[in-house]
Design a protein around this nucleic acid. Structure first.
Length: 343
DNA sequence: ATAGGGTGCTAACAGTGCCG
DNA sequence: CGGCACTGTTAGCACCCTAT
């Protein structure tokens, strides 16, 4: 385990013990569990009871992180706890609401094992602890490249210049990204100019966590409002050189969801659509129009549907229960088998 | 063997956004 | 509003591979 991870856990455990007066001990991994929980366990003693929580570490927590952790399978008989650097008050609330146990290095925590109940939020990030820098891989340019790679696995073997051209990123950037991928164990050189993405699903999840924070806000979001809540139902969006994302896209491919918010990806503002459907521009509108950041073709584009990975990410980023359920279905149907080429 | 272009890589530069 | 940190691009260099 990396030293950084270990420091994180030790820091959080000490802070929680100090703040509550409860006995909290960190146990590094025991061989029996293999590498299912490589970060080990925390044991909490309370009155004459004790619990062992399997640790999942995340340096930072966002709504997408919470959504992903919630859908992560657990070993039977093991409670899990998320250990993080710092949970903001809204994230603490969200984790409690979703039922995700956590503790951070600032002394915030949610632990609910009756009769033991701890919920602490609002402790500030320690002064001396500045947030860990984000790798280039998860910055806007990196996220564009990784998105293309995840959707087109064969692209790892392309020359850097070609990757740069397709992803609208500079040549030098591609090198940064590939180096990060190698360093983090997501890419290996096979020799003979062959490369391979390893651990595509963990990479996918990291992408989903970073996308809403780093790339999405840069996509020139414009918000609109419509009078008729069902205005989108009979629109063939492909006619407008655009595609549905988020809840509408999910509703169309899963037939599960009743969309409340509308996300449209369009390279140009779809003036015709806006006029025909009488969409009004307003800062609080629940219709978002944003610019796509991919150029490759994919299976659903002809139906006016964004790539499934993007739909999944937009759903997870809402942190909404129903959306997370639907996102799971999309994950199982479109994303879980990385070797399928028909995505 | 050699020329030439393609490829990976690097460091300096520029643009951006953030914070006081 | 101005300085500062950081991200991403540009330009150029060295090392291949390939065709003649």
């Amino acid at each position: 385990m990396e030293q950084q991870t270990k420091n994180l856990i030790v820091g959080a455990v000490e802070t929680l013990a100090q703040a509550t007066g409860i006995k909290v001990v960190y146990k590094a991994n025991v061989p029996k569990t293999g590498n299912v929980y490589p970060d080990g366990f925390v044991r909490i003693d309370y009155k004459n009871m004790h619990w062992d929580f399997a640790i999942q570490t995340k340096v930072r927590v966002t709504r997408a992180t919470v959504a992903i952790e919630k859908t992560q399978p657990t070993l039977p008989g093991h409670d899990r706890i998320l250990v993080t650097e710092y949970a903001t008050p809204p994230m603490a609330d969200l984790m409690r609401q979703i039922g995700l146990l956590f503790m951070d290095t600032a002394g915030n925590a949610y632990i609910n094992k009756p009769p033991l109940y701890i919920f602490i939020k609002g402790n500030k990030r320690p002064e001396n602890l500045k947030p860990a820098p984000i790798k280039r891989l998860f910055k806007p340019a990196g996220l564009k490249v990784v998105f293309a790679l995840l959707n087109n696995p064969q692209m790892v073997d392309w020359p850097y210049r070609q990757v740069a051209a397709v992803t609208d990123v500079a040549l030098g950037t591609v090198d940064w990204i590939f180096r990060d991928l190698k360093e983090m164990g997501f890419l290996v050189e096979m020799g003979g100019r062959k490369r391979k993405i390893t651990n595509p699903l963990p990479l996918l999840k990291r992408w989903v966590e970073a996308y809403p924070e780093q790339l999405r806000p840069k996509l020139g979001i414009e918000r609109f409002k419509a009078d008729d809540p069902n205005w989108w139902k009979n629109v063939d969006i492909a006619d407008y050189n655009a595609c549905w994302g988020g809840e509408v896209a999910a509703a169309k491919i899963t037939k599960q969801l009743k969309p409340e918010k509308v996300i449209i990806y369009a390279p140009e503002p779809p003036g015709k659509l806006i006029i025909e459907k009488k969409l009004r521009k307003t800062a609080t509108g629940d219709i978002e129009i944003l610019k796509p950041f991919w150029k490759f073709d994919h299976k659903l584009i002809h139906l006016g549907i964004a790539p499934p990975l993007l739909i999944y990410a937009d759903l997870m980023a809402t942190g909404d229960d129903r959306n997370i359920e639907t996102a799971e279905i999309i994950y199982d149907n479109y994303l879980a088998q990385p070797d399928r080429h028909d995505r």
